[in-house]
Amino acid sequence: MMLLEGKTVLVTGASRGIGAAVAVECARHGANVAINYASSPDAADAVVAEIEALGRRAIAVKGDVADPAAATAFAKAAVDAFGSVDVFVSNAGICPFHSFLDMPAEVVDRTIKVNLNGAFYMTQAAANRMKDQGKGGAIVAISSISALVGGGMQTHYTPTKAGVHSLMQSCAIALGPYGIRCNSVLPGTIITDINRDDLADEAKRKYMEGRIPLGRLGQPEDIGGAVVFLASDMARYVTGAAILVDGGAFVNLQ
């Protein structure tokens, strides 16, 4: 069943990890996909090739989401290539692990600019295209379980993910009159480039796996289904909501 047949999906930070997996899953469900990336053009091209191998069209657009101009350029590129912006997925994010008391200001500033400001600007640009098209749309932000819990080495990161979730709640209200739905996906511990080194510690990895009722860490592909659902007409009356995709980690207090 193709849930996104004929739609154009935009995904930020989609040259690898969760963004790449989401982009490919949307293509599997019939969408043409525009991916944003900040570096690694070879990785972005590989994602485009994977989507094209599924019989869908794709483009890769370089841009730093922290730059407001990149947002309008990304939306324009998608419209130029595919004619519309139907679904926008705000995924780009960074998490340079660092202790709190000696964290450099530039690390804090860059994390906020990419994770929160970038989500704002990109969402705004996509929403304006959707409004002008006059046929509604769907916006999905990749927040994090870290929006709900703390992390000693993530004091700069967790507030941005809480902010992304809050952004979707407010946008659900602001954009509802235009038929634009806004929701969040909150991944748990997903193995990506962000945490691969941290989880290379076998003892830590086994501890994390033991805390998860489903008994394993997440893979980027585990996030795709939730995004496709929220982007599709199956979720036509869902807005301002959040879906935890964490293997049950959040509810396990034992």
Rank of each mutant, 00 (worst) to 15 (best):
A58G: 09
P68H: 12
V87I: 13
A78M: 08
A21H: 01
E209I: 15
S99F: 12
V149P: 04
G163Y: 02
K204R: 15
D109I: 09
G30S: 05
L244D: 06
C171G: 02
N128E: 15
I51V: 11
Y237P: 00
C182L: 01
N128V: 14
G163K: 02
G151C: 11
P213N: 01
E52W: 03
T160R: 11
K62Y: 04
G224A: 13
R129I: 13
V185N: 02
V89D: 05
E50D: 14
D246P: 07
A235I: 09
G176H: 05
P104T: 12
D80T: 13
Q154I: 07
E221G: 03
S84R: 12
D80A: 14
D198T: 15
S184V: 02
I190H: 07
A38D: 05
A231W: 07
H98E: 13
C26P: 07
P213V: 01
T123C: 07
V251L: 14
V108R: 12
E5I: 07
K131Q: 15
V140P: 02
F120H: 08
A249V: 13
S39A: 15
R129H: 14
G218Q: 03
M130F: 02
F120K: 01
G55I: 00
L148S: 11
M168Y: 00
Y37V: 06
S232H: 08
E106I: 12
A125K: 08
M103L: 15
Q169P: 01
L186K: 09
F74M: 14
G13N: 06
L4I: 02
P159N: 09
S39R: 13
Q219D: 14
E25Q: 12
G55P: 03
G30K: 00
A78G: 10
D222S: 03
F82L: 10
A73G: 08
L54V: 03
T72W: 04
A34F: 12
G151Y: 05
G224D: 07
V185A: 03
G134V: 10
N115E: 11
A241N: 08
V85T: 06
P177R: 00
L148F: 14
F100G: 03
A172V: 00
K62P: 13
A119C: 11
T111S: 13
C182Y: 00
L175P: 01
L167W: 03
A20D: 04
L214P: 02
M234G: 10
G137D: 00
V114W: 03
A105T: 14
E209F: 10
S184G: 04
V114G: 07
A70P: 04
I112P: 06
R236P: 04
S90T: 08
T239H: 09
N128G: 13
A92L: 04
M168F: 00
V85L: 04
A69K: 15
I180F: 02
Q219R: 15
L217T: 09
V228I: 06
E52P: 04
A200E: 11
P159K: 10
L217D: 05
I190Y: 03
R16N: 06
H29T: 04
S184H: 07
F100I: 12
D64V: 11
A69F: 07
A81N: 09
T111F: 05
V114H: 08
V164F: 00
E52A: 10
G218S: 08
A73W: 10
A147K: 07
